[in-house]
C-alpha cells in the first residue's frame, strides 16, 4: 500500500482509539506526573484507604454489578473479593470498549462473525493488559478511570492469590513503558494484536492475515516517523506479543484457581464467556 494510505489508516485508528478509550496515555501520564493540578488521584495504600476509596468510587457512579455477593460485603475479610468484583465490572466495560474499537478496524466487521468472536475472545485480555501499561509506574497503578492511584505495595500485601495477580503486569508494564509509545502508536499496536491470524479455531485465516499485514505496515511506518531515533522499535514491539501471551495464560490460570478456592466469588458472565476454554 502507498504511504499515504497507511498514514490515513493510522489516523483513522487513532481517532477510533480516542473515541472509545476514555483514559488515554497522555491523560494518564499527566495524572501520574502531577500535572493535573487540584485533580490529584485518591491514593489507596492500605485497607483503611481502600474502604475510603470504595466510597469514593461509589460516589463517582462507577457501574456496579448485580452479581456481587451481598452477604459478605461488610466483612473485612471480603475486602479483596469486593475489590475484585469492582475490577471485574470495569473489565467488562473495557471489553465493550475494545469491541467497539475492533469494529472500527477497516475490514473487521466484514470477517466471518464467528472469527470476529474468536479474535475478541483471544485478543481482548492481551489488549487490556497492554492498555494497563500507561496507567502504571513502578510504584502503582491508576484505576477507576484515573480517579484512584493504588500502590503496588498494597496490591502485594493482599492475601493469596489476589497478591499474585498484578505483580506480573507491573513487571511487564515497567519494561513496556521504556519503549515510550504514544497513544497514536498504541492504537495501531492494539489493532495488530486483535488481528492475530493464529488464534485457535479461526475459520478463515487469510483475510485476517491480510488485514493484519496492512496494519503492520502502517505501524512500521508510524514508528519510523514518530520515533526516528529509536532503533529496532518495531521489532522490539513485536517481541512483546510473545511475553503477552504468557501473561494472559498465567492470568487465566489464576482466575480459574480463584473460582475454585473462593466460595463467594462469581465471575462476570462476559468474562466467564471469554475465559472458558481459553488456554
Amino acid at each position: 500500500p502507498e504511504a499515504a494510505d497507511l498514514r490515513a489508516l493510522s489516523r483513522h485508528l487513532y481517532e477510533a482509539y480516542l473515541k472509545y478509550f476514555p483514559l488515554t496515555k497522555a491523560k494518564a501520564r499527566a495524572i501520574l506526573s502531577g500535572k493535573t493540578g487540584d485533580n490529584a488521584p485518591f491514593v489507596i495504600h492500605d485497607m483503611k484507604s481502600l474502604m475510603e476509596g470504595e466510597q469514593f468510587i461509589n460516589c463517582k457512579q462507577i457501574p456496579t454489578q448485580e452479581h456481587q455477593p451481598q452477604t459478605s460485603c461488610n466483612i473485612l475479610d471480603a475486602v479483596e473479593l469486593r475489590f475484585f468484583h469492582s475490577c471485574q465490572s470495569r473489565s467488562a466495560e473495557a471489553v465493550r470498549e475494545v469491541t467497539e474499537f475492533a469494529k472500527s478496524i477497516p475490514g473487521f466487521i466484514n470477517l466471518d462473525l464467528n472469527d470476529q468472536v474468536t479474535l475478541l475472545k483471544y485478543g481482548v485480555i492481551e489488549v487490556l493488559i497492554i492498555m494497563m501499561a500507561p496507567l502504571m509506574n513502578k510504584d502503582g497503578t491508576l484505576i477507576a478511570y484515573g480517579q484512584i492511584f493504588m500502590t503496588r505495595e498494597f496490591l502485594k500485601s493482599l492475601r493469596k492469590p489476589f497478591c499474585q495477580m498484578m505483580e506480573p503486569k507491573f513487571e511487564f508494564s515497567v519494561k513496556f513503558n521504556t519503549l515510550e509509545l504514544d497513544d497514536s502508536d498504541m492504537a495501531l499496536f492494539l489493532a495488530v494484536i486483535i488481528l492475530s491470524g493464529d488464534r485457535p479455531g479461526l475459520l478463515n485465516v487469510k483475510p485476517i492475515e491480510q488485514l493484519q499485514e496492512t496494519v503492520l505496515h502502517a505501524l512500521e511506518l508510524q514508528l519510523k516517523l514518530n520515533h526516528p531515533d529509536s532503533l529496532q522499535l518495531f521489532a522490539k514491539l513485536l517481541q512483546k506479543m510473545t511475553d503477552l501471551r504468557q501473561i494472559v495464560t498465567d492470568h487465566v490460570h489464576l482466575i480459574q484457581l480463584l473460582k475454585k478456592t473462593e466460595v463467594d466469588m462469581c465471575l462476570h458472565p462476559l468474562l466467564q464467556e471469554i475465559m472458558k476454554d481459553l488456554y
Partner: peptide
C-alpha cells in the same frame, strides 16, 4: 454461538452498557 452470546451481542450492537 450460545457459548459466546454476549460477545455476539456486543459485536452486533445489541448490548448496551446498562446490560453489562
Amino acid at each position: 454461538k450460545e457459548k459466546h452470546k454476549i460477545l455476539h451481542q456486543l459485536l452486533q450492537n445489541s448490548t448496551s452498557p446498562v446490560d453489562l
